[in-house]
Amino acid sequence: MSESSAGSVTEGPSGDGRGSDGVRLNKALANAGVASRRVAEQLIVEGRVRVNGVVVDELGTRVDPATDLVDVDGTAIQFDSTMRYVVLNKPTGVVSSMKDDRGRPDLRQFTADWEERLYNVGRLDADTSGLLILTNDGALAHILAHPAFGVTKVYIAKVDGRVTAQTIAALTRGVQLEDGPIAADKARLLSSSDRGTGSLVELTLHSGRNRIVRRMMAEVGHPVVELVRRQFGPLHLGSLPVGQARELTKVERGALLTLARRAADDSPPPDEETQ
């Protein structure tokens, strides 16, 4: 495979994988924890590895881990071992900031286990709990947080009153707020009290507008009592306890990187900041 067909990918003689032509692909995959060198060679021969979107099946192929984008069976591979991806179940009462100028509890208390300086991807209101991503991968954070890339988030809202099917339909059709119309990507009623004392609603959104779930539910007459984010893109909160953080698994990291790369390929470069 020539450089013209796959970015900086080049073929080279067998060796230790170092030099001006980059690193042998099987060694790069092994260093990334994908598989042993022997198994990585088999993956390459079977045509299951792509570099910069092009299938590579030559064992002598070399790559530049700093610039080449590699995926195996469609899952993106991260070569940079300094990148950290952490999921936090943020408690209520904590602001989504690494340093709050008003002295309120912030996210620093959850990052002490990592040497790298981590930053939050987007925000959750202080009175909202749930899934928050912390990372030092700025490019990925930008794609995940910006609504132009269409990465969805799933929220569970406990609201006042008895929510009806008509209300759910209104949320997906769209409601008019003071800063413009907004529609949920998906909405469904999880439970509703016959006495009208409360309902549970699941909303899927890709908007980054401030307090959007609370404002939408208030607009349809059902103010939010409690709100938790259960999912961000391919990541699920699962059974992670409130106030706990953990590094993503290899599978989760691959899914997140894959989503980010696909979103970047499918969306035009945004020219606005998300909230």
Rank of each mutant, 00 (worst) to 15 (best):
V242S: 13
H236D: 13
L256R: 01
P241T: 09
D271C: 07
P268L: 05
L227Y: 11
T258D: 07
P268S: 05
R262Q: 11
A245R: 01
K250P: 04
P269H: 01
T258V: 08
A255S: 09
E247W: 03
V251G: 05
A264L: 07
E226S: 14
L237C: 11
E252W: 05
A260F: 03
L227P: 12
E252M: 08
R261N: 11
L227I: 12
P234I: 04
R261D: 08
T258F: 10
P234G: 01
R229F: 14
D265W: 02
V242R: 13
R246L: 13
R262M: 01
R246M: 11
R229S: 12
K250M: 14
V225L: 15
L257V: 05
A255W: 06
Q244G: 03
A264S: 09
L237A: 13
P268R: 00
L235I: 15
V251T: 12
V228D: 07
A260Q: 07
R262E: 03
A260W: 04
P241G: 06
P268K: 03
P270T: 04
R253E: 13
G254R: 06
L248H: 03
R262I: 00
S267P: 01
A260P: 05
K250S: 14
R253L: 04
T249R: 07
V225A: 14
V225T: 14
V242M: 13
T258P: 06
L256M: 10
P269D: 03
Q244A: 12
R229H: 13
L240F: 12
P269W: 00
L257M: 04
K250N: 08
R253F: 02
G243S: 08
G238N: 12
G243Q: 09
Q231M: 14
L257H: 01
P268N: 04
P269E: 06
G254L: 07
P241E: 09
V228T: 15
V225G: 09
L257W: 02
P241Y: 08
V228N: 10
G238V: 08
T249P: 02
E226Y: 07
G243F: 13
S267F: 03
A255Y: 05
D265V: 06
G254V: 11
A245V: 10
P234E: 09
A263T: 01
V242L: 12
L257P: 00
R246D: 06
G238D: 15
S239I: 10
V251Y: 03
A264V: 02
L256D: 08
P234T: 08
L257Q: 02
G233N: 05
F232V: 11
G243C: 13
R230Y: 15
L240W: 09
Q231A: 15
R230S: 15
A245M: 06
V228M: 13
K250D: 14
E226V: 14
S267M: 01
P269Q: 05
G238S: 10
L257F: 03
D266Y: 00
R229M: 14
Q244I: 11
Q231I: 15
H236Q: 09
T249I: 11
A260I: 05
V225H: 11
E252R: 01
G233R: 03
A260D: 10
